[in-house]
Design a protein around this nucleic acid. Structure first.
Lengths: 350, 350
DNA sequence: CTGTTAGCGCGTTCAT
DNA sequence: ATGAACGCGCTAACAG
């Protein structure tokens, strides 16, 4: 009874070949191979027969089987640790835009535990968004064993894989120094987990800039939160409710800054007048909101990131081919917008 | 010169076998096969040799090759169209929690275009979070051809795959009717794209509840936005700035409701007093924020969803085995919290 | 009881 | 346009 087509079984290239009355090789060539387009071709009538058969069976080539032979999966993996962070969404969008026209599918790995996964799952290239110190060895091993990596990290060395750095230090200094032009009571809003990671740099910029300006750092002006927007909101509310409240907040991420702006407004404070708020990262959200968010960050970051990743993904398999992998640095700029405008002598808050 | 180990080449089971001086079969049995555990075993010394060799080469089994033979990828795909929506994050978290202990990796597909991808990439199970009408045929075809699907949709029939519905209609009615107890001027905040999809149901509940209450629907009380939080914020601001401003807002998603609360506060309105706001979805964010968000939604939704998905993923390959796929309905509840409290006769706003 | 041989399942690709 | 080998890991059947 059960003839074919809807057996619940996935059609294979052999079924297509049989139905079309040709060999599997021919099917392969017609559907994806080098022939049939312009090369020493498959005859038109045959190609038609094959296409019709494939269509009728609903045939889709099996990526896994293809990958095993070609070494290419037409897939890139994005390992993103903070999916709720708009930064991650920007990465996804940019990569999506660049990948889809190339027939490459971006897959997102939302687990911080990329080490196990990347060892077994193959992708043409992998973007890794954060590297804990204890993961560095694993990273180098992955690269040695043929995984094509693009790593976003400020400290890791490029050993067999590309590193994208966007040296936050100087940029963050610019942010704090911008506030120092008009303020003396400057608070810092930063995730508690940022102690060891890249966030540490961003917090250090605050400490050092204050020290260099001769302003003592106050414990109660450091608002730690759990990494969520809601947590940032709560921490900002705490800061702005202090009896001797800060007149400016330096937030180590844009999304925290956005939360801080919401918190300030809820407390009836005019952002950009009563209190200045600056973020870090230069995300679109900050630019579009009202009042627009002053921030520091790289320019054109996400598109360039996507370009690097896809160049690697479409290049020859295994890293370190054609172009030697290296470090790509992004210069940071200061974007002065409404939430922390330029302060003249007349508008200084001290 | 290049000997082995760090050739940039991924080690195969054959290399391990050679280094250990055994056959590939033995390696396979030791590393993952049925023997060596409790069954008729591999001798301890041999097993040790193999493990040492694998360790030394940094061998990781190739998922693609394994999948082609076993039909299992130890992977589930989550196709999520609105990654910025906290709802998606809740899905990811719940599935993550349930999958990792089982050795299954969740991969996220951020593209609305799941049709092409799911045909070629295999996973043990796939969760699809939204189905456009023009995708329904493709959905049935995928299921027919062996893809194990769990679909979240209110309208699609369960034809060869599981459907999770969480019948929004009655729940949304409850939300609007809750507002009707204390208000006459009720606005609706909803994404513009919700016209044809499940959001349509949520909007319809508003129209119908108003009609049944004998309150004419006003065009200027329908705030359409682009689906982003920022867009929702802007639309809410518009609604609340009307000369004859609404005293209550029914938002068709929780995140839109959160934006509306922020917007109201920015305008100096006390939420829960001057204006009531209710959402849809019952997300954790809403529960935790301040003021806490009144909402309607299912109970324990995400964990149950994850359980269904993983039961399918770990069950026999191909859908419709063991248990016939079916429809899983979620009952909705009304959660009355601070942003839209109970209104007595004394506190009515009309 | 331990280990090996051989063949499978896919799509690709080189000779013929 | 084709037959057959190939790449990878799995596993039934077999040999010691």
């Amino acid at each position: 009874m059960a003839k074919a087509s809807t057996t619940g079984i996935r059609p294979t290239i052999r079924m297509v070949a049989e139905l079309a009355g040709v060999s599997t090789a021919t099917v392969s060539y017609v559907l994806s191979g080098r022939r049939g387009d312009g090369g020493p071709g498959v005859s038109d009538p045959t190609a038609e027969k094959v296409k019709a058969a494939a269509e009728r069976l609903g045939y889709r080539p099996n990526q896994a089987a293809r990958a095993i032979r070609t070494g290419r999966t037409n897939t890139v993996i994005l390992s993103l640790t903070m999916l709720s962070d708009p930064w991650s969404l920007s990465v996804i969008e940019a990569v999506q835009r660049a990948a889809v026209p190339l027939g490459i599918t971006p897959m997102i790995l939302g687990d911080a535990d990329w080490v196990k996964v990347l060892g077994t799952h193959n992708a043409d290239a992998v973007f890794v968004d954060a590297v804990r110190p204890d993961q560095r060895d694993a990273l180098r091993q992955l690269a040695e064993h043929g995984t094509t990596l693009v790593v976003f990290d400020e400290e890791v060395k490029a050993e067999g894989f590309d590193v994208i750095r966007s040296i936050a230090g100087p940029g963050c200094r610019m942010a704090v120094e911008h506030l120092l032009h008009g303020h003396a009571r400057i608070a810092c809003l930063t995730p508690a987990t940022a102690a060891g990671t890249s966030g540490g740099t961003r917090y250090r910029a605050y400490s050092e800039a204050l020290a260099d300006a001769g302003i003592p750092e106050r414990d109660d002006y450091v608002g730690l939160f759990d990494g969520t927007s809601a947590g940032a909101y709560a921490a900002a509310t705490r800061l702005l409710s202090l009896p001797d409240r800060p007149t400016a907040i330096y937030a180590t991420t844009d999304y925290a800054a956005v939360s801080a702006i919401n918190a300030a407004q809820r407390l009836g404070l005019a952002v950009g007048t009563d209190v200045d708020i600056i973020g870090v990262g230069n995300t679109v959200e900050g630019e579009r909101m009202s009042p627009s968010l002053s921030t520091v960050g790289p320019v054109d970051f996400f598109d360039k990131l996507a370009r690097v990743l896809l160049r690697r993904a479409t290049g020859p398999a295994g890293t370190a081919a054609t172009e030697q992998p290296g470090v790509l640095d992004f210069p940071w700029h200061l974007f002065v917008r409404e939430s922390a405008p330029h302060r003249s002598a007349a508008t200084r808050l001290y």
